[in-house]
Amino acid sequence: MSEHHVLGLSGGKDSAALAIFMRQKYPHLNIKYFFTDTGKELPEVYDFLAKLEGFLGKKIERLNSQRDFDFWLRQYGNFLPSPNTRWCTRQLKLLPFKNWVRPWLDSGDKVYSYVAIRSDEDHREGLISQHDNLIVKLPFREHGIDKPGVYDLLDASGVGMPKYYEWRSRSGCTFCFFQQKIEWARLRDRHPDEFEKAKAYEKTALDSGSPFTWTQGESLVELEQPERLAAIHADFEIRKQREYARIRINPLRPKVEHPLEIDDLYLEDEGGGACLICHK
């Protein structure tokens, strides 16, 4: 019986910080780092993964069954995924991982999967193992590493934050339905071609009878109208200033080193609740 150690990278800050932590804390472990590519990732994600590979000194394995988002969209009759029907997570993230580790598990090997759930995330749970030999480990929780600790790991390593955090709160598909409306507005500004592709997917889905649009309550065509964009930006600024006013200064960290993230400002009916495996 052999042992395998695996760590999934989403292109997000937490899983990257965990990879850095494991390399520094447990250099004797031969960890296999992997990334499940949907084919619709932000270009900033690929840039960040390349930078992380340089620090880790090893290749990040790309898991892809050659069946990307477009393939599965056709399989689901052009119906868009939604918070209640997350076929994208099942088919593009979980299934490739299960197929990857299955030969090891079938041969009786143990697989240790390291997941980046922080010590300040009591409400989150990792992938529940459905096999006795698949063991899920939560090193951040075990070592008491919280969000500021994640920032410290990224800063000290020189890897830094993914560039998309300048305007967006998560990695994953360019058109993730868990985005807030401000993130859709910013996607239109930063990557107008990707925004147009998302509009095209939405139109095809609606023409095919799909009840879902990418963002709740309105289509992207409606969202991009000048008056609506102005209202979205104004509302976000109000929420941001309100949240800054609530911040209590930590005497051990009197300086606010990192700005509020968009996820800190989400509304109940938009954003939040994102798939753990996609954006951590």
Rank of each mutant, 00 (worst) to 15 (best):
R124E: 07
G126Y: 00
L127H: 08
L127A: 03
I128A: 12
S129F: 06
Q130A: 10
Q130K: 11
N133M: 00
N133L: 08
L134W: 13
L134H: 13
L138A: 12
L138G: 12
L138V: 11
P139E: 05
P139D: 11
P139A: 09
F140H: 01
R141C: 01
R141K: 15
E142T: 13
H143R: 09
G144W: 02
I145R: 06
D146I: 10
D146P: 07
K147W: 10
P148F: 13
G149H: 13
G149F: 10
Y151V: 07
Y151G: 07
D152P: 08
D152W: 14
L154I: 01
D155Q: 15
D155F: 12
A156F: 10
S157T: 02
S157K: 10
G158D: 09
G160D: 11
P162A: 08
P162K: 02
K163F: 00
E166M: 07
R168G: 02
R170L: 09
C173S: 04
C173W: 04
F175M: 07
F175L: 04
F178V: 03
Q179I: 01
Q179H: 03
Q180T: 14
Q180V: 05
K181R: 15
I182K: 07
I182F: 09
E183G: 02
E183W: 02
A185M: 03
R186D: 03
D189E: 15
R190F: 09
D193M: 12
D193L: 12
F195R: 03
E196W: 00
E196R: 01
K197M: 14
K197E: 15
K197L: 15
A200H: 11
Y201P: 04
K203T: 08
K203M: 07
K203A: 11
A205M: 04
L206H: 05
